[in-house]
């Protein structure tokens, strides 16, 4: 998956799971402050991303995540790692 595909997929997931208004989703948007996600939401998001990418994601890998772009980068790294 290309970076922009990943970003779009993430955006779709945020809208589907949490009904986040599309306009609020920007790369810099913070998951907690700007998008109003709580810790349970982050677990749901990780599950969803696992389903879509087919990759196992450890919750620890999401500990340092703050923004939408952080999530997209992390998924990109995971998918790249799988190729090697």
């Amino acid at each position: 998956m290309e970076k922009d595909q990943i970003y779009q997929m993430l955006k779709d997931s945020l809208i589907e799971l949490f009904e986040v208004p599309e306009g609020d989703i920007t790369p810099e948007a913070k998951l907690d402050e700007d998008l109003d996600l709580d810790s349970i939401d982050v677990i749901d998001l990780v599950e969803k991303l696992q389903d879509v990418t087919g990759k196992k994601i450890e919750p620890e890998e999401f500990r340092s995540i703050r923004t939408v772009q952080d999530v997209a980068d992390r998924i990109h790294d995971l998918l790249e790692k799988g190729k090697i």
């Binding site: 589907e16 799971l17 949490f18 009904e19 349970i40 939401d41 749901d44």
Partner: peptide, 9 residues
Amino acid sequence: YGPPSVAAR
């Protein structure tokens, strides 16, 4: 109507 996260909201 959707996933549990939406129902909870």
